[in-house]
Write a protein that binds this DNA or RNA. Structure first.
Lengths: 235, 235
DNA sequence: ACAGGCGAAACTTTATACAATCCGCGCCCG
DNA sequence: CGGGCGCGGATTGTATAAAGTTTCGCCTGT
């Protein structure tokens, strides 16, 4: 009875337009369609989703609490621009939390869940073959969220959702190559370890997967100053 | 990270009334003055803080996102009532995060910070000697937040603040004895380990401290039903 | 020609008014 | 006499309008 989804976080009802806005913006960020620093005008979003500024405002405030939107007083809401320091914190937190999440996921693994993971892997592969970079990026992030859902630990799930969204921005800002965001092979290996219920292997693979993602980033502080300066000059 | 010099009237108390409301309610929860299930009427709070319903609403939404307030549609906002399952999740997350936080705190330990910790310990002792249960509970929670601030890890700090607030509700709901909420001796031991820069000891003491707090709880599911029933009848 | 200031426009912020929803109570019917 | 039904009060959800603040453009003075 613990793992039941409560209406708080997941209100699929069409009447809850706030969730629609929030999820729409989140998806756009996860797909790298919204760039850091983009202004999110209230009128603009309200017109897109057919909602009043009141609802847009609440959605933006929730996103700000998740750390993927910055609200500057009397200025408006902007897509967050994580600093290299933020990036290091995010990935350190993920390295701490996600191995534990995989542990729980193995405890909660059922054939249905494993099928779901397998299906997700094929979706990832198809998107990559199709060359659909946006879907590929989004699915790569969703994989980690799926494992967290599987774990049934709602707190970890909430924390990780935040971290994934911020990771998407970080990867967009600081990645070096144009290789796929999240190696599909890693995900397949993690699923294999889950299927074998090998916690140690799953933890290790998740950890090395995260390390590899972070290793593909360019987080030197000089880059930070450069970007910050550029931002100051641009603004 | 922004400049602290804001040219004009940027008094953080008067201008940002939303924060005042949020912090006031949070403090009331941390001091066990607001009981789970208490209704937080918008007009009521607005009158207390001299704010309009708009501001009260945003504050309540932020608190809902932190998990210490439940907003039921067309019903209003209520102080959250964590279930035993929630309690287990919260403490598991704390056992995962806080040892790491102590590690970082030791890395960032400066004489000023250690003084601050020491001062906090004396405040805790004084409150306990004075028999001020409310201040004692609040300070016990703040100790953990202080260590997280010290670590300089803003993500861990944000996560832990949520967990601490929820822990306060959990302790209020499920604690067995009337012993002090958070053993002061444990805190003193942790500070001693930090001063000695002994990471292993600090991690171990933090972990056992959290385990001891959780061990003082009564988290059988029957207790939850019992309390819930009592509350329904009482309300 | 350039720097500085003034003014208007656009935006966010805040407050208020309106609409929808839910709970409680009384009434009517079985 | 008990239960179902409908109405009234209250509270929340939503929208709209007013107020404050910032920013950008233009104009004037040097």
């Amino acid at each position: 009875m613990a793992a039941k989804i409560r209406p708080k976080s997941d209100a699929p009802d069409a009447s809850d337009r706030v969730s629609r806005i929030r999820e729409g913006v989140t998806a756009a960020i996860l797909e790298h369609r919204l760039l850091p620093g983009t202004k999110l005008g209230e009128d603009e979003i309200g017109e897109i989703y057919g909602a009043s500024r009141t609802l847009v405002r609440t959605a933006l405030q929730q996103l700000a609490h998740e750390g993927i939107v910055n609200i500057e007083k009397n200025r408006g809401a902007f897509v967050a621009r994580p600093t290299p320091a933020d990036a290091r914190e995010v990935f350190e937190a993920r390295r701490l939390i996600e191995p534990t999440i995989v542990d729980h996921a193995i405890d909660a693994a059922s054939p249905a869940w494993i099928d779901r993971l397998q299906q997700h892997l094929t979706e990832e592969r198809e998107a990559e073959l199709r060359g659909d970079a946006r879907a590929s990026v989004r699915l790569s992030g969703e994989f980690h969220g799926l494992v967290a859902e599987m774990s049934g630990h709602s707190i970890y799930l909430g924390f990780l959702k935040e971290l994934i969204a911020r990771s998407s921005l970080i990867i967009l800002l600081y990645r070096r190559h144009d290789a796929p965001a999240c190696g599909n092979d890693h995900h397949a290996g993690i699923v294999a370890a889950i299927r074998k219920r090998d916690k140690q292997a799953a933890r290790a693979q998740m950890l090395s997967h995260l390390r590899e993602i972070e290793a593909e980033l360019f987080l030197k502080d000089s880059a930070a100053d450069e970007l910050r300066l550029a931002d100051v000059l641009g603004a």
